[in-house]
Computed example of a mutant assay.
Amino acid sequence: MSKQANLIDRIVSSPFFEKAMVKAESVMANDKMGLLRIVQHSLKKVSELAAQSNLTVVRLLNHYVLLFSEMIKAYVQGRYKKLPAVTLVKIVAVLFYFVSPFDFIPDVLPLIGFTDDLALVLWVGKSIKHELDEFEKHANV
Rank of each mutant, 00 (worst) to 15 (best):
I8V: 15
F16G: 04
A51R: 13
I128N: 00
V92R: 06
L35D: 00
V108W: 14
P84S: 07
I105G: 02
F16M: 07
F114Q: 09
T87Q: 07
S53E: 02
S42T: 06
L36N: 11
Q52A: 13
M71W: 07
D133Q: 12
H63N: 07
W123V: 00
N30C: 03
K32W: 00
M33E: 15
A24D: 01
P110V: 02
K45R: 14
G34C: 11
V94S: 14
N30W: 05
K81D: 11
I72D: 07
V141T: 14
A74D: 15
I8E: 02
L109S: 04
M21Y: 09
L118A: 12
S69R: 00
Y80L: 06
N6A: 11
V99K: 00
K32N: 03
A74I: 04
A119E: 08
K19M: 05
I8Q: 02
Q77E: 14
A20E: 10
M33D: 14
Q40R: 11
Q4V: 13
I38Y: 07
L36W: 09
V124S: 08
A24I: 00
D133H: 06
Q40E: 15
N54M: 09
A24M: 03
I8D: 01
D103I: 05
Y64R: 07
K3P: 04
S69Y: 02
V121N: 01
G78I: 07
G125M: 03
E18Q: 15
V58P: 02
I128C: 01
M21I: 14
I72N: 06
L36F: 05
A24P: 00
A50N: 08
S100Y: 05
S127H: 08
S14Y: 07
A139Y: 00
L67C: 08
L35T: 00
V92S: 10
E18V: 06
L60E: 15
M21R: 14
F98Y: 15
L67T: 15
L66T: 05
P15G: 03
T115F: 04
K45A: 06
I105S: 01
E18D: 09
S53H: 03
L111N: 12
P101G: 03
L118P: 04
K3N: 14
K73S: 10
Q4K: 11
L60A: 09
F17P: 00
N62V: 03
K44M: 08
A5L: 13
